[in-house]
Design a protein around this nucleic acid. Sequence first.
DNA 1: AAATAAATTAATGCATACATTGACGAATGC
DNA 2: GCATTCGTCAATGTATGCATTAATTTATTT
Lengths: 223, 223
Amino acid sequence: MAEAVKSSRVEAAYERLKDEIRTNRMPPGFQAPEPEIAIRLGMSRTPVREALIRLEAEGLVELIPRRGVRVLPIRAEDMREIYQILTSLEPDAAARYAETNPGEAELAPLEQATAEMEAALESEDLDTWAEADDRFHQILLDLQGNRRLKDFVRALYDQAHRARVVTMRMRGPPHRSTQEHREILNYLRAGDGDSVRRLFKQHRTRSAEELLAILEKYKLGQL
Amino acid sequence: MAEAVKSSRVEAAYERLKDEIRTNRMPPGFQAPEPEIAIRLGMSRTPVREALIRLEAEGLVELIPRRGVRVLPIRAEDMREIYQILTSLEPDAAARYAETNPGEAELAPLEQATAEMEAALESEDLDTWAEADDRFHQILLDLQGNRRLKDFVRALYDQAHRARVVTMRMRGPPHRSTQEHREILNYLRAGDGDSVRRLFKQHRTRSAEELLAILEKYKLGQL
DNA sequence: AAATAAATTAATGCATACATTGACGAATGC
DNA sequence: GCATTCGTCAATGTATGCATTAATTTATTT
């Protein structure tokens, strides 16, 4: 699952920075010059720079000419963009995959993730729930064969991650979402592409609406 | 239209290399070590390296550990991936745009591009036709407001470009395609999102099939 | 002659050096 | 006191240097 560890400093810098951004240790809006980051990571500017270029390409940071890196905040508008794309891509991808009539062995990890979501929902363990939810989508991305789609959608997940973490606790327990996962899985088993697409589309549309409503309601201009 | 000219060497290297790849002056499979590229572009390795990292992120080249850059060939499988994504994204994006009920002024460039396609088809000027076709899609991308979608789809266009150029002359005149553009434009005018989506989906599905059939027929394993 | 080992070459990954230039603050003028 | 100019400082963009190490060639052995 984990990418091959290419023990290079660029790789190390990339992973560490990405992690610090995801976990809000480098919060949105955070800004620092390259040399500072380099010192913090204990390496020279060169590998840091290359890592930053990659992170910029993935939409996590911005390199401002004289002010260094800035961790990009996520605004409601960004979430709208991201969810529009997910709503277009994921349902079709999942439908295509369904039509390959995947066997039970292949679907096992999805079943596992779904079961975990159900259990976590029961025990009101939101962190575990979110982790399993994320895993479900990641697994599906891996199963569906389109590499470009996978990489791009994954980058979008990464961008949206922080906002999801914040808003997760601002709404009721995700019964509906959990149930939708279960239904999607059932239709994947049945090889019913059209139903998978329809449900997945609904799943994404609904979560987008919920999320945007929360951002609106709590005036969370940017995260 | 043209990106702001950020007179930096990285930018220059990026643009030149991208252009050389698009125009097949650096053909698929072409391979060269960094220092060689640097010398050819008359600059040091550093900016070249940064440009290459960006090009790699966009899927145009691959950086192989001890052998330098390699211009990625496009295989049938790649075209399939690319068209799957386009078929999911563009129709929805166009439909959303249609539902904003765009005015005639906004649609003018699209009308222009469509008219040019029709004229070029008439005079059997394939190059002009292809240019107008590309322009139509680019304009629509710009009009539709999703920036992430725009950048990503544009990168896909770039990847597919070479294959499109090659296959274009291996088939009959693109009557159907031209007509579809006209119809899509009509429904954009009418603000009829559903029809735009349906037609656009058909448009992409059909061109994908045609293209893949040609690749198959002429055994064009990679371009 | 084939296989193995040693030596050479060269590319990368990273560190470092340096010129340029924007940002910021101090000093000056009004 | 406020605006303006100048000077300092520091960050970036780029070049260069260097150690490491894979690839390749040459030499050696059987």
